[in-house]
Nucleic acid binder design. Sequence first.
DNA 1: GGAGAAAATCTAATCGATTTGTTCAAGATA
DNA 2: TATCTTGAACAAATCGATTAGATTTTCTCC
Lengths: 336, 336
Amino acid sequence: MVSIKDIAKSVGVSTATVSKALNHKSGVSQTVRNQIIEKAKEMGYVVNGLARGMKISKTFTVGVLVSDIKNPFFSEVISAMERVLYAKKYNLMICNVGENPQKEVEYLELLVSKKVDGLIVAPAAEGQNLSIYRNLVRHGMKIVLFDRLIDSVNCDSVVIDNRASIYEVTKYLKDRGHKKIGSIYGIEKSYTGHERLNGFKEAIEELNLEYHKEWVRSGFFREEDSYKQSLEILAKSSKPTAIIAMNNFSTLGLMRAVKELEIKVPDDLSIIGFDDAEWMKVCSPSITTVIQPADAIGMTAATLLLDAIENENIHTIQHVVLKAKLIERESVKSLI
Amino acid sequence: MVSIKDIAKSVGVSTATVSKALNHKSGVSQTVRNQIIEKAKEMGYVVNGLARGMKISKTFTVGVLVSDIKNPFFSEVISAMERVLYAKKYNLMICNVGENPQKEVEYLELLVSKKVDGLIVAPAAEGQNLSIYRNLVRHGMKIVLFDRLIDSVNCDSVVIDNRASIYEVTKYLKDRGHKKIGSIYGIEKSYTGHERLNGFKEAIEELNLEYHKEWVRSGFFREEDSYKQSLEILAKSSKPTAIIAMNNFSTLGLMRAVKELEIKVPDDLSIIGFDDAEWMKVCSPSITTVIQPADAIGMTAATLLLDAIENENIHTIQHVVLKAKLIERESVKSLI
DNA sequence: GGAGAAAATCTAATCGATTTGTTCAAGATA
DNA sequence: TATCTTGAACAAATCGATTAGATTTTCTCC
């Protein structure tokens, strides 16, 4: 590979001059500068990012940790981040940790060793790597948490108002005459799972709705589990009139069960989903759902991180809470 | 950050010894080795990947270029790659190039400067960066192409038999009495778009089916365009009895149009999709579709690349062609 | 023409890990 | 005891770029 040294030799100057010329820094005559740039292009020179990164302690790389790239919510968030970071010439290193804390640790270490300039993380469910995050922050690593929070880590974050939005849709159902409401919730120990479930429970209580343990089941944010739990709920003779599914996979599982049991939606059962997926507006009936502003989440997270990286001294930590939005489609029937 | 030097000083040995000890190389007594490892852990040492990468000319990083992470096909492929690469301690750098050749070039350069050990690429549609790929290969870069081919680049590749599979589904429709078949195809200039469309045309011709220009329209592999073109096709008084959509977004667009026009599937129109998405089996009617083995594609591509990287001398270039599979669901009606 | 300022260029240290070639000491052999 | 072997440990070069500080060249102006 051609290096700065080769160019220097070829043009007849020192490497210092070449470096300055190629980085558009002052202290090089116009003539020499042009010669160098010309030669560099001719020889097909590409800077060695390792050497450069080592010297200037900056890699223009950001690590992203999510639990599942296949989840359309995360792909959309990541896609938005990419847009923002690309504009500033940053690269992202994406790590898929599943819900595996051990893998999370390994990837974190890998990213640290790769000297990423910052991290954007949706921490794994159990939150047991808390001390690692705290340690990273203490050592000056720039971190933005999104989707899931860890209270005790002092860094920027972007989440939605999970609790409020589930509360709201529960009320939405009540307002339409639903009194028997069930739900397929997620991973209770995870931030989102916990918050959403709590929003639901609060609503049930405060709005004086019936609470049936059999109607409120965890699908672990997975399609298969949600499908099975949905079957359980819907097999009973005493069924809810509406079910809230608390993420996209839960919604999918619920839909599968409904289809299999040939239950008519919304006539026999009303459904509210969570997250948006393109199919939700295409299928019949289309799904009324709570949409997370995935794009905004990604952009905000990336922007916060860039700010933290590039304005190290004046950056103040922010906790952004975005609003989720209920989109009314065809899967809810008014009983009034 | 703590470096090898700090450990050396702290233990009272040279950096050479520390390096050997931490890398499990011979030439260090058991006693000293243990001391070093102990101390390293205690001081929270993490190797500096930049320095190491620079010295050993290896970064354990693979660049991945796709046109759209949000496309479930690509997320699934990437997810499979991640699984394979993670097992060997490689990281992936994912780049979203859209169908923008300029962005493709920039990202390629970025990845080169980051000294990735190899590239896995679904090249952008137009194939105009051909010479760049050829150049990279000539300079020893390990590349695996997937999804889309560039003939003249001499490197490993993984694709499916696009042409054959579309031919096959067209025949499938004919066998069920369909004579008027339309299609929402993709980007004609792209490899997949081209191959699939040609498979369709061949089938039409060889199987003596009607060919109506108005029934065969490009949706550019995008939902919105596919939706519009579907409306155009279905608005005519002389409609096809079946439509083949040639990727997941096309299928989605077609479905949207069908829903909007309140056309009954499969009674009034049969549909065959392409790619699989979880919703396709959940919606009503569920979609008969051609499934690409996304997981296998990702695993194969990653495996090929690893082989190319790790067995540089004995690796022989392979062109793998995987089979796509028609999954029969509810969206096709037999007219016989 | 020459002093002094300004601009251009160079030298050399540095980032952190790896590795080659050496030195040194302990144990083996005669 | 003298010599040889072997293993442990070290010094220093290296990867490629950046940059502070030294040096040289060019320019300005009296």
